[in-house]
Amino acid sequence: MLLIPCPWCGPRDEAEFHYGGQAHVAYPENPAALSDEEWARYLFFRDNPKGLFAERWSHTAGCRRWFNAVRDTATNEIHAVYRVGEPRPVTA
């Protein structure tokens, strides 16, 4: 089980959180202009790295706020957490 450091509440058990998948996926600025391939890429394709991954979490059983984390999917180690709207921090 992960111990996730909520940037608002501090470290809490994974069971208090809801997962939101890849972070920093922006809605297309002009959806109508996208080709089918581009739309498919936005809708269905997400990064799936074995390694560092910027992802979204919501502290649903706590402050109920969304935030981002950088976690290593090969080890589950969380390298950074940061607030929505902040850029992805540089991690080792």
């Binding site: 089980m1 992960l2 994974e14 998948g21 074995k50 991954f53 999917t73 090969a74």
Partner: peptide, 13 residues
């Protein structure tokens, strides 16, 4: 388990 991972283990909950 909800979160992406390549670890062959999951959370106890």
């Amino acid at each position: 388990d909800a979160a992406n991972s390549y670890r062959q283990r999951g959370a106890f909950h």
